[in-house]
Design a protein around this nucleic acid. Structure first.
Lengths: 239, 239
DNA sequence: GAGGTATAGTGGTCGAACCACCGTATCCCT
DNA sequence: AGGGATACGGTGGTTCGACCACTATACCTC
């Protein structure tokens, strides 16, 4: 059944060494990686091997290469999660969005609860800012949705769990691309803002149970709006 | 701020075409990808470009290459999630495990709840099997832990949400590597089995609230055992 | 028939060369 | 002296052709 593990794979060793350098702090996000030709010399391997290593690092989201400029370290460690979810969504087609919504329904209330215990002033400021933008953008779907996602992202940051943050970051990114627009249901933004304000208030007053309940109510409303917008597909015309 | 998106990147186009083939069903898991030299001819590019594409697909977890045999399609779409979590854990060091535990604490009770509504006989069989193995392995830490993880995995499968399943699958895989062993706390396995049986019963009788509560209680116990095992680090000696 | 041995095909690595692109320093013209 | 076109060096992207290590299979020998 099992096959002997081969330690070989030259480029993997290079990947590990570079990853180690990042972990040690020798390479920080934004730093430029040495040129491929130089790395090849350093590791005493061909440039091909180095390129494969860089390619792997790129796919992991640890590095970004710009032709003519160089390769730079990024902090997009959640890149891989985003891509995986993206793929799972593609193979899942329509049901995929339902699964994504279900996952949100599980995560977000607890995120709100965590946020209520750990929130700091900077997060509150970001949330208030996003809330304000939404208030001013009831006529601008794109801006409203953008701010909506920012709101949820700030909330996830307040929960202060990098793993969960990465997950929500990926989900938000997917929603941004899919451009869910339950938005145009009659009175949608108003109802959304009502719930947002309740969430914000609960977080501000460190009310754990209140935050959880408010988020649940919010998601419940979004789900119902989503259903009714499917019933009248005209509302989906807006890009 | 933004930079023009360059569509170029030859190998990315190849990646997309192959991904498309997989989505269309022309390539199914287990199938062998055409040889690199052949693909190069098909796409009318150099073998190098093909290799970079294959490398990218490999990093995404869509493909597995064996030297001397060929490259095969895999169904490990959650590979990327695993790697990302693995990386986030590495950069997070010690706290990482706490964050992981927190995420589990959020997900698993809801998974149990979902499972209670969707479970099928095959999942129940898998869970009973894992339960039985644990019962017979109170003296064998490795086997017990393995079965424990299987139990939680079967539960996640019963929840019938592929996104969540991928996540739990990744988390379980990480825990397997990290070899958490709260196991050796006095009476640990017995307490664990008590909770497992309660969870199993709740799922069997489709008791949503009961399943959620039982899982919460289980995780709570694990957390306490984990704390006390840190207090007496001797228990960590077992590999 | 059982054994080992050639063989052909696979992915992995190498090296050299060329391309397209970018930033900058330089030079020339005004 | 100032400002804009230009040349240059460096970077990643791509190509080619060759060789290596490995694997499975077919063949050949005993």
């Amino acid at each position: 059944m099992y096959r002997a593990v081969r330690a070989s794979r030259l480029y993997e060793q290079i990947v590990e060494q570079i990853e180690e350098s990042i972990l040690q702090g020798a390479l920080k996000p934004g730093d430029q990686l040495p040129a491929e030709r130089e790395l090849a010399q350093t590791f005493a391997v061909s440039r091909t091997a180095v390129r494969e290593a860089v390619k792997a690092l790129h796919e992991k989201g640890l590095v970004e290469a710009y032709s003519g400029r160089g390769t730079f370290i990024t902090n997009g460690a959640s890149q891989g999660i985003r891509q995986s979810l993206h793929w799972l969504l593609r193979v899942g087609h329509e049901e995929g969005l339902a699964y994504l919504a279900e996952m949100r329904a599980i995560l977000e209330p607890e995120i709100a609860a965590l946020a209520a215990t750990r929130v700091e002033e900077s997060h509150l400021a970001a949330m208030r800012e996003a809330f304000g933008v939404m208030d001013r953008s009831r006529q601008d779907p794109a801006a409203f949705i953008e701010a909506d996602l920012d709101f949820h992202l700030a909330l996830a940051e307040a929960a202060a769990n990098p793993l969960i943050l990465s997950l929500i970051d990926s989900i938000v990114d997917l929603l941004r691309q899919q451009r869910i627009r339950i938005f145009h249901v009659q009175g949608g933004p108003e109802r959304g803002q009502f719930h947002h304000s309740r969430i914000l208030e609960a977080i501000e007053s460190r009310n754990v149970e209140g935050a959880r309940a408010a988020m649940r109510a919010h998601l419940e409303q979004v789900r119902e709006d989503s259903r009714s917008s499917q019933a009248q597909p005209l509302a989906r015309k807006i890009s």
